[in-house]
């Protein structure tokens, strides 16, 4: 009994002593702030900050070589946590989400040819600028769905990409992969958006899409402060969004949508709530 206790205890002591000594002798300087920052980062390695992964970003922030407010998936809470660690004042970021500025699925928008090739938007775009007649519309082949690290994008049965506002963290991976720049970054607090990406004239749009913005200015006439019309395409002015919903009923092509009343047709997502805090934080 005594021998057992002593020998195992002895082995333990020797091991502990060796490890203790080694920890001193072979200590490698790691900035504790770097580890602390890595702790508060979301750890999805999405690359939204411009660095290859979260550990690279943590290192950069700790060294002071990169701004501490670049982690969009983490949102304002992460920025505050980083600021706490670094002992600086937080520079808050407006939480953003991505939206697909198009509702022209297979039923509502026409194609100029039948596409049978590789199911990838970038491959399709190389063939005569994509099968969709509209030069800006969603091709619906799911490149963004595959690029999304958070599973926030779904393709409807009629080939339209829809982004879930609750799951989207604003990492912009889908924005980078989309060949038609139809995915836009918008403030999370806004739920009313003009879902069209074509600058073509109204008469032309009516030929190929039932739900595109024809640049008729009716939304601007209804709620002057909330909309801007440029080059036959309306945009919501996100600075003055409060009454924007009033124009939805008036829009002749129904291309303005309030996500709090529902996602575009065909989507399985429930109507969006307006979150107070950012989902990923």
């Amino acid at each position: 009994m005594l021998a057992a206790v002593l020998s195992i205890g002895g082995i333990g002591l020797v091991a502990a002593a060796t490890l203790g000594l080694a920890a001193k002798k072979f200590a490698v300087e790691v900035d504790p702030r770097e580890l602390a920052i890595l702790e508060v980062l979301p750890g999805v390695n999405c690359g939204a900050c411009g660095l290859p992964g979260c550990s690279g970003y943590a290192k950069g922030v700790a060294e002071g070589t990169i701004a501490p407010n670049l982690c969009t998936p983490g949102g304002s809470e992460t920025v505050e946590a980083i600021a706490d660690i670094l002992g600086i004042e937080a520079i808050t970021i407006e939480p953003q989400v991505a939206i697909v500025a198009c509702q022209g699925d297979n039923r509502k928008a026409t194609n100029k040819y039948r596409y049978l090739g590789l199911q990838d938007c970038n491959a399709a775009q190389k063939l005569a600028d994509g099968p969709k007649t509209c030069p800006g519309g969603c091709l619906g082949l799911g490149s963004c769905e595959r690029a999304c690290p958070f599973g926030a994008i779904e393709m409807t049965a009629e080939n339209l990409a829809v982004i879930n506002r609750e799951k989207c963290t604003g990492c912009e991976k889908c924005v980078a992969v989309c060949p038609r720049q139809v995915i836009k970054m918008v403030p999370l607090k806004a739920t009313v958006h003009v879902l069209c990406n074509s600058h073509d004239k109204g008469a032309l749009i009516r030929k190929y899409c039932q739900i595109g913005c024809i640049g008729c200015h009716i939304c601007k006439k209804t709620v002057p402060e909330a909309y801007v019309v440029e080059n036959f395409l309306a945009f919501a002015d996100y600075e003055h969004i409060e009454n924007a919903a009033a124009a939805i009923e008036k829009c002749p092509t129904k291309c303005i949508r309030d996500f709090s009343t529902g996602y575009p047709e065909g989507s399985s997502f429930p109507p969006a709530t307006v979150p107070v805090k950012h989902p990923a934080a």
């Binding site: 490890l19 080694a22 920890a23 072979f26 200590a27 490698v28």
Partner: peptide, 11 residues
């Protein structure tokens, strides 16, 4: 293993 890890990290 811990010891080996420390040694390698340093050397």
């Amino acid at each position: 293993v811990q010891l080996v890890e420390m040694v390698i990290q340093k050397t």
